[in-house]
Amino acid sequence: MNAQILPLISSAAAHLPLNPAALAASALQVVETEARAIELLRSRIDDSFLRACQLMYDCAGRVVVSGMGKSGHIARKIAATLASTGTPAFFVHPGEASHGDLGMITQKDVVLALSNSGETDELLTILPLIRRQGIPLIAMSGNDGSSLARLADVHLDVSVPAEACPLGLAPTASTTAALVMGDALAVALLEARGFTADDFARSHPAGSLGRRLLLHISDVMHTGDQVPKVGVDSSLSEALVEMSRKGLGMTAVVDAEDRLLGVFTDGDLRRALDDHAVDLRSTPLARLMTTKAKTITPDKLAIEAARLMEDFTIHALLVVDEDKKLVGALNIHDLLRARVV
Rank of each mutant, 00 (worst) to 15 (best):
A12L: 15
L18G: 07
N19K: 07
P20C: 01
I38F: 14
I38P: 02
S43D: 14
D46G: 10
S71Q: 07
H73G: 06
L82G: 03
F90T: 03
P94T: 06
G95D: 07
G103M: 06
D109E: 09
A113N: 02
G118E: 04
I126N: 02
L127I: 12
G134R: 01
G134K: 08
G145F: 12
S147G: 05
L148I: 06
A149F: 04
V154R: 03
S159I: 10
V160H: 00
E163R: 05
C165K: 00
G182H: 00
A184M: 08
A184Q: 05
L185A: 06
V187T: 14
D199F: 09
A201Y: 08
S203K: 14
L209E: 14
R212Y: 09
L215C: 15
P228D: 01
V232I: 15
D233L: 14
S234A: 15
E238G: 09
A239V: 03
E242I: 04
M243I: 11
S244F: 14
K246Q: 13
G247N: 09
E257K: 11
G262V: 02
T265N: 06
D279T: 12
L280S: 06
L288R: 08
L288D: 03
L288V: 09
R307N: 12
F312E: 12
I314E: 00
K324E: 13
V327N: 01
G328L: 04
A329G: 08
L330N: 01
N331D: 15
D334S: 07
L335G: 00
